[in-house]
């Protein structure tokens, strides 16, 4: 099992909650299609797409790094985790630019329900991502140890799985908030 059973309890728990979020969004959308379509036209797809690409790339590097570290301690492995951390930082920066862009244009959460869902769901997701970045910093420090014990590998796997959770939740949010029309 990747990581340990506990991290999967966390992951499935979060997937359940986000599944509910997704359902709520599409349900509310189906009740006021026009409003959502109208608001959706003001979304900039590039922000969302770039963030998707950043997360996917980061996820790949964390897997490659983990595979390397399983073969024994190596600088390559820890550097790959650093690349993932940079992808995460890029996501945060991009999100900051997007939020300020939206707020400058007058699209605040109180204006309409599309933007209310947009800000709340992406905000909760961003919180998950920031927790994941703390996890990546811890993983980086573990990866730089001269010798990796079984416990270290387990913790690295758990951190990696959490990071992939952040990635896959964003994939669905991207589809629902940016692409659905």
């Amino acid at each position: 099992m990747p990581g340990e059973i506990g991290i999967w309890v966390f992951i499935f728990g979060d997937m359940l909650v986000f599944g509910l979020f997704f359902g709520v969004f599409v349900y509310e959308r189906s009740r006021s299609v026009e409003l959502f379509e109208h608001a959706h036209e003001t979304m900039d797809l590039t922000f969302g797409a770039v963030n998707t690409l950043l997360l996917l790339t980061g996820s790949m590097f964390v897997v490659l790094g983990l595979n390397t570290l399983r073969g024994g301690a190596s600088r390559t492995g820890s550097r790959m985790i650093l690349v993932t951390l940079l992808c995460g930082a890029g996501f945060v920066l991009n999100k900051y630019l997007e939020y300020s862009d939206k707020i400058d244009a007058g699209h605040t959460p109180s204006v309409n329900s599309f933007y209310m869902y947009y800000f709340v769901f992406t905000g909760i997701h961003l919180l998950h991502l920031l927790i994941g970045m703390i996890g990546l910093v811890i993983m980086y420090r573990i990866a730089r140890k001269p010798v990796l014990e079984a416990r270290d590998i387990r913790n690295l796997e758990a951190g990696a799985c959490y990071w992939h959770l952040v990635d896959l939740l964003w994939i669905v949010l991207f589809a629902l908030l940016y692409l659905m029309r």
Binding site: S59, V62, V63, E157, A160, C161, L168, I171, V172, A175
Partner: peptide
């Protein structure tokens, strides 16, 4: 496509 991507992330990245 989004959920297919989710599945790929689970199968290959989450191992």
């Amino acid at each position: 496509v989004a959920f297919f991507k989710v599945y790929l992330v689970g199968r290959y990245f989450m191992e």
